[in-house]
């Protein structure tokens, strides 16, 4: 991370960006999301929809990480890359464990809506 801080405009994080990278990230990310939108509008089977959305999610986020944020193994960026890699499992655990725990709880504790509606009649 060493640099001459008396010349802030020469800092590696200032100099790393390029127009090609930013335009590329925007176009690729936009196309990935448009692909997901297009497939979702055709109302495909659930498995196909999930697969499409996951591919779009991965492409979009990876492209943004590499081209927008400029994350790589360089001396200037490596600790940001490491921090993201260590935080992503926390995202997955937070969402995955919560959904798993509550879906299991829901199945065992919540009444079936169809039974409730038949009781109301």
């Amino acid at each position: 991370m060493a640099t001459d801080h008396y010349q802030p405009l020469q800092h590696p994080e200032v100099q790393q960006g390029t127009a090609l990278r930013y335009v590329g990230a925007t176009v690729i990310s936009g196309l990935a999301l448009y692909g997901a939108y297009y497939v979702a509008m055709t109302r495909p089977p659930l498995a196909e929809l999930v697969e499409t959305l996951l591919v779009s999610l991965l492409v979009s986020l990876l492209v943004q990480a590499a081209l927008y944020f400029g994350l790589d193994a360089s001396r200037a960026q490596i600790w940001k890359s490491v921090t993201l890699i260590l935080t992503v499992p926390l995202f997955l655990v937070t969402i995955g464990m919560t959904v798993w725990a509550f879906s299991s709880l829901y199945a065992r504790t919540m009444p079936d809506p169809s039974i409730l509606s038949s009781m109301a009649m």
Binding site: M1, T3, H5, E13, T83, F91
Partner: peptide
């Protein structure tokens, strides 16, 4: 390494963004 305030600030802010991401998670 010599002290680099800009890198220290952006890295600190990056840590904030990770915690912000956990709020959205």
């Amino acid at each position: 390494d010599e002290h680099d305030p800009i890198s220290a600030r952006t890295y600190g802010f990056w840590l904030y963004l990770m915690s912000d991401g956990l709020i959205f998670a």
